[in-house]
């Protein structure tokens, strides 16, 4: 049993492809390109774990792409990503196909893990909890006496 499981893990790996789409795409044509990309991954025998709809972002620096022998410069782009399981041998084929894709400025294929790796959302949650907890204390009246003492001290300081 262990051997077969190991083999299954060996024959497919978890990858992630991040990509930047041309900002010239309209809002109607962008989802089409996005679903075409997903179909491409599925068509190559990939199994999609999670993905995010491309969003318009401001690029940190200007990028250029040659389209029909003309250098085009971009300061904005749609950034999206797809996480998927795929056979390692097929990933190089996927890379070749993505290279030919007209609507992609650039892309990045990474090895990753199945679990969600984005942690920032959790942190926002934690920070919110911290912010919320003192308010709750106020409602319960626990922290009120402390406030009174502080106010008294402040008044004393003012008088002195």
């Amino acid at each position: 049993m262990d051997n077969t499981e190991e083999k299954a893990e060996m024959s497919s790996r978890v990858y992630e492809v991040g990509y930047l789409l041309l900002p010239t795409l309209t809002e109607e044509s962008m989802p089409v390109v996005y679903s075409n990309l997903k179909d491409l991954v599925v068509g190559m025998g990939g199994e999609i774990i999670s993905d995010e709809m491309p969003k318009m972002i401001n690029l940190a620096y200007t990028m250029s792409k040659v389209i029909q022998n003309v250098h085009n410069k971009y300061d904005m782009a749609y950034f999206g990503w797809i996480k998927f399981v795929m056979d390692p041998e097929k990933v190089s084929e996927l890379k070749k196909k993505l290279n030919l894709e007209e609507n992609i400025i650039r892309f990045l294929i990474l090895k990753t893990v199945r679990e969600n790796t984005i942690a920032s959302k959790r942190f926002v949650h934690k920070d919110l909890k911290r912010k919320l907890s003192p308010k709750r204390d106020d409602e319960n009246g626990v922290s009120l006496p402390i406030d009174k003492e502080e106010i008294d001290k402040e008044i004393d300081a003012m008088v002195a």
Partner: peptide, 14 residues
């Protein structure tokens, strides 16, 4: 400290 095992390139805030 925050129990992050995989540092993701998309977490730009971190």
């Amino acid at each position: 400290a925050n129990n992050i095992k995989h540092i993701d390139y998309k977490d730009i805030e971190i």
